[in-house]
């Protein structure tokens, strides 16, 4: 049997009928062909599938799609504004935080949830927040630097507006 759900994904309103055992990631990847959200472990251990649900970072492999009924979902595909990349995406590219890139969408989404909440997180907070996003290539250094770079950029922007 299937269950009707309504989701807003990257601003687009979507109605679907899905089986109860479909996870949010299945809807994204299989129903909607949104393959930017990656499945690295399926058990919430690696963070590659991180999306934002009502603004909160969530492992989309550990949430049933029916549980997301009525929720607002943001994925990596919705982050850029057309050709204009989100500052976090820019920073990941500029700083060199991307190697094989498989963990990247999840890293960026977790970083976004953090920076949406705290404009100026300490390195300790950045590291703790990203602890569930595993990366085998980079040793994390450049990823942490990228998040720091965005936060100082965002702060400067806020400062200049305030001035």
């Amino acid at each position: 049997m299937t269950y009707p759900i309504e989701l807003t994904i990257n601003g687009e309103f979507i109605k679907l009928d899905i089986p109860a055992n479909w996870r949010l990631i299945d809807v994204l990847r299989r129903d909607l062909s949104m393959t930017g959200t990656h499945e690295g472990c399926g058990e919430g251990d690696c963070g590659a599938c991180t999306v934002l649900v009502n603004g909160q970072a969530v492992s989309s492999c550990l949430m049933l799609a029916v549980e997301a009924n009525g929720c607002e979902i943001q994925t990596i595909e919705g982050l850029a504004d057309g050709d204009i990349l989100h500052p976090i995406q820019e920073a990941f590219i500029e700083v060199g935080a991307i190697q094989c890139g498989f963990c990247t969408p999840g890293m960026i989404m977790t970083s976004k949830a953090l920076l949406d909440k705290h404009a100026d997180p300490s390195e300790e907070v950045i590291r703790r927040t990203l602890a569930g996003n595993l990366c085998r290539c980079t040793g994390y250094e450049k990823i942490v630097s990228a998040v720091k770079a965005v936060s100082s950029k965002l702060l400067n922007q806020t400062d200049s507006i305030a001035e």
Binding site: E77, Q89, I93, G96, I98, G101
Partner: peptide, 21 residues
């Protein structure tokens, strides 16, 4: 020089296709 990776933009936007995709 600190040249950025040509594949980074695809990877940062979720457009890079891996075999699983």
């Amino acid at each position: 020089k600190r040249v950025t990776k040509p594949d980074a933009r695809d990877k940062a936007t979720g457009r890079a296709l891996y075999a699983t995709d």
